[in-house]
Design a protein around this nucleic acid. Structure first.
Length: 834
RNA sequence: GCCCGGGUGGCGGAAUGCAGACGCGAGGGGCUUAAACCCCCUUGAGCCGUUUCGGCUCGUGUGGGUUCGAAUCCCACCCCGGGCACCA
């Protein structure tokens, strides 16, 4: 590997003083495998990243969303960990007490599916994969505090899932209700949405049905207002995520009122955000699932047809119903009475109305609602305008403001007043009221699955639903022989698990056999990191209050809604019961882009993952880390490029050679070249610091590369050892959080005894960063015509004088009248001529 | 259908008053017996003049607009990616 040019052979020379005057040139790349293993061992042995609460230092809690242990860390994963690791190391250097923990989201569908296929226990396969992933993290040089490692399938962890469930249950925030699930009649099993493809079971292709099961919910809707209002204080979250959560919660104000069906036998309730348009109601629509549908169509001519329509609509998922291009519906044959004027309007059933939102029934106001307009147009229904639209408005609903018309006692009012008047009217008549409606629904946590946390509930014929007493926790997940769900959770087939004693009456009873949604685990695991081995409590509030909130949380944007909303909900709940000192868990959120290859997201299921093993061998962890940082803006998707890692390795090799190979140093007095080298180094330091702070990691790497180019030039032209030593020292400090192994090795070899990871992050020298002169751009009519070097503090009139004196500028002005001069000294000056 | 992003060289990208930093790839040269490594040079398109350096025009998806000045701000359209629960 080592080739020597010239007659001498040196391997490494750690002493700078001995380099002075040396003239050896050797071509050599560093032995990354050896060096990386060495420093990984050192960090581990010295417990560099293991921390405890230390009130004397500012704390920094830095968390990456804990991964599902899929077995291998591929290049897509490593992008994320390059960011989190850089931040941990950078914040340590800035003097923070930094906690960077890691754990495993180890319950869930993939391990269970594997078990169904090959019969291997999910516990065994998951634990094997955790071992492999930990090894990958070690090779990567990850700065985690492994003392706090946790895994959601560990009874020491899910014990507290169950405890949390009971706390929610005690306060009426966990309840049981019937809800539909996807059901494959052939496989006799419940399917996740993901397993339903085009309305059919992904395994056998059988058309999927809906089945109602009695299931557990968490009452997140009780927290809707707080979840919405507190978004305003999350000013270090991406706006896009806040907007998505705001829309997801979907608070809307309006009115709810009853409508009577002709004949007086039935009534149904509708919710509307536009009660002011009630005189424009020309039809009503019920959701296909609406309980009244059957009664309304019973005995009508079209009963059979409507029933078929309802069956088809119920089969479709909400997304399919929404994606349907044209709105379809069926007339029920029944009519409703508009409460304000007793007009009869037809009642339809249509799939664009969803049972899960509002009351599952709407008043159709085609004049003021575009969906209603489309529906009315298609079925030839009457359209009445109740808001005075602009004169030439036609062909679509008018959603804007205007004077209320065709509306009896509401005529002449604006929308705000009309809403107020009609709500008062409805309340007076006792048929309705002002109402606030949320899109957010309660959180369904029941899963008819084996590989999850058992729900700590016992059902007793005498006592009904009985919570398992806390001293009997955890309810442990038993081993089973068959992982395939046969109609129920596989747990239902384990008599030793199911059959138990009622904690209340001590009679025979049965355990709940559903398990919890894995989002329950992930909604509080970050509290557990602060006190990971506590077997007496979910965590010590004092420890949690030291570390919380998380100062930096990093993960994929795909979690923008569900995980982040559930975690916010549970944090607020923990605050309410006195365990959390904060109401929001994540002070700053960063959502990173995906690493894509051949047009698709890198994922195991697509078969386009790039495994890092060969890259570790050929280039090493530092080169991989630098490439992951360099590949593109962290928020954007990035494209994997095989030769990119070779590029960052080349850069590291250059830095290595600069520090370990003798150069023809001159023993001379510092001059302008030395000043320039230090200036460039400090400018790079400023750029790197600022870019790390604003998460522009790709440009921090370019800045270091540019600096290395400056070093290269300097070394080629009578370098001075003392000057270069100082510049190089700063280079290593900057490199430390990004390419830590090589930086540490070079730090040691250049004569430092200290642990680089614990060195303070350097500060730039303001005098060195400031330029005395800059190049001013001179434009004529907005086109760059010349450049001239000027003092940074040049005045506008002086800049104009100098610019006008330039020969080229005179040529372009060519005697014409200078109409205007826009001077932005010292950067640009623009002459506007005729 | 709705919402949110995004379109810059052969490629990833940089740039908020100089378009193309940095890197990849490609081409040329040096070193070498040779190759690899390494080092140096060139690399948006078109054109002009020279003669080894200089200059001009065009150019950031398309078409408009605002401005002394637009990749950047505004409007319309096209394309790509992501999200979605037709939210009454």
């Amino acid at each position: 590997m080592l080739s020597v040019i010239g007659t001498h052979r040196i391997v490494y020379d750690p002493s700078w003083s001995q380099l002075r005057g040396g003239t050896l040139i050797i071509s050599m790349n560093y032995d990354h495998q050896k060096i990386e293993a060495k420093w990984q061992k050192r960090w581990d042995e010295d417990r560099v990243f293991n921390v405890t609460e230390d009130p004397s230092k500012p704390k920094f809690y830095n968390v990456a969303m804990y991964p599902y242990p899929s077995g291998d860390l591929h290049m897509g994963h490593l992008r994320n960990y390059s960011y989190i690791d850089l931040i941990t190391r950078y914040k340590i250097m800035q003097g923070y007490n930094v906690l960077g923990p890691m754990g495993w989201d180890s319950f869930g569908l993939p391990a269970e599916n594997r078990a169904i296929e090959n019969g291997i226990s999910p516990r065994i396969s998951v634990e094997e994969q955790i071992v492999r992933m930990k090894e990958h993290f070690r090779l990567f040089g990850a700065a985690f505090d492994w003392d706090r490692e946790l895994a959601s399938h560990d009874p020491h962890f899910y014990h507290w899932d169950q405890w949390l469930f009971l706390e929610l249950f005690d306060r009426g925030l966990a309840y049981k209700e019937f809800a539909p699930v996807n059901w494959c009649p052939k496989d006799n099993t419940v399917l996740a949405n993901e397993q339903v493809v085009d309305g059919a079971c992904e395994r056998c292709g059988t058309t999927v049905e809906k089945r109602d099961l009695n299931q557990w919910f968490f009452k997140i809707t009780d927290y809707a207002d707080r979840l919405l209002d507190d978004l305003d204080q999350l000013d270090e979250w991406p706006d896009r995520v806040r907007t998505m959560q705001r829309n997801w919660i979907g608070r809307s104000e309006g009115a709810r009122f009853e409508i009577e069906v002709q004949g007086g036998a039935h009534r149904f309730e509708v919710f509307t955000t536009r009660p002011d348009t009630i005189f424009g109601m020309t039809f009503c629509v019920l959701a296909p699932e609406h309980p009244l549908v059957e009664a309304l169509i019973s005995g009508k001519d079209t009963e059979r047809e409507v029933q078929d329509y309802v069956t088809a609509a119920r089969r479709a998922t909400d997304i399919e119903r929404m994606a349907e291009g044209e709105k379809t519906g069926m007339f029920t044959g029944a009519y409703a009475l508009n409460p304000v004027n007793d007009q009869l309007v037809p009642i339809y059933v249509a799939e664009y109305v969803l049972m899960g939102y509002g009351t599952g029934a709407i008043m159709g106001v085609p004049g003021q609602d575009q969906r209603d307009w489309d529906f009315a147009t298609k079925y030839g229904l009457e359209i009445i305008r109740t808001v005075d639209a602009p004169r030439d408005w036609e062909g679509e609903a008018y959603l804007g403001d205007g004077t209320t018309i065709n509306s009896g006692f509401l005529n002449g009012l604006d929308q705000t007043s009309a809403k107020q008047v009609i709500i008062e009217w409805l309340e007076e008549k006792g048929i309705g009221e002002g109402a606030i409606q949320y899109r957010l629904r309660d959180w369904l946590i029941s899963r008819q699955r084996y590989w999850g946390c058992p729900i700590p509930i016992v059902e007793c014929d005498e006592c009904g639903v009985v919570p398992v007493p806390r001293e009997q926790l955890p309810v442990e997940l038993p081993d089973v022989e068959d992982y395939a769900p046969e109609g129920r959770s596989p747990l239902a087939a384990v008599p030793e698990f199911v059959n138990t004693v009622c904690p209340s009456c001590e009679g025979p009873a049965r355990r709940e056999t559903d398990t919890m949604d894995t989002f329950v685990d992930s909604s509080w695991y970050f509290f557990r990191y602060t006190d990971a081995h506590n077997d007496h409590a979910i965590f010590d509030p004092a420890k949690a209050s030291y570390w919380m909130p998380i100062d930096q949380y990093i993960g994929g944007v795909e979690h923008a809604i569900l995980h982040l909303l559930y975690a916010r909900f549970i944090t607020k709940f923990l605050f309410d019961i006195g365990l959390s000192s904060v109401t929001e868990p994540f002070a700053r959120l960063f959502t990173q882009g995906m690493l894509v290859l051949a047009g698709g997201k890198m994922s195991k299921s697509k078969g386009n993952v790039v495994a890092p093993d060969d890259y570790y061998r050929a280039y090493g962890a530092d080169a991989i880390r630098l490439f992951e940082l360099f590949v593109g803006p962290p928020t954007d998707d990035a494209v994997w490029n095989d030769s990119g890692v070779a590029g960052t390795k080349r850069f590291l090799d250059r830095v290595w050679r600069m520090g370990t190979i003798g150069h023809p140093y001159l023993d001379r007095v510092a001059d302008s070249r030395d000043h320039e080298l230090l200036s460039e180094t400090h400018r790079a330091l400023k750029r790197v610091t600022e870019d790390v702070d604003r998460f522009h990691f790709n440009t921090t790497v370019s800045s270091l590369m540019s600096l290395a180019n400056v070093f290269q030039d300097y070394l080629g032209d009578q370098p001075r050892a003392e000057t270069f030593k100082e510049a190089y020292r700063l280079m290593l400090l900057m490199l430390s959080p990004m390419a830590p192994h090589i930086a540490h090795e070079l730090w040691e070899r250049t004569g430092h005894d200290s642990m680089l990871a614990l060195e303070p992050w350097p500060e730039w020298d303001a005098d060195l960063v400031t330029h005395d002169t800059v190049v001013m751009v001179v434009q004529v009519n907005g086109k760059v015509r010349d450049r001239v070097e000027v003092p940074v503090d040049i005045a506008a009139d002086e800049a104009e004088r100098i610019a006008l004196g330039l020969e080229k500028v005179q040529g372009w002005i060519d005697g014409a009248q200078v109409r205007n001069v826009i001077a932005r000294p010292p950067n640009v000056i623009n002459f506007v001529v005729e």
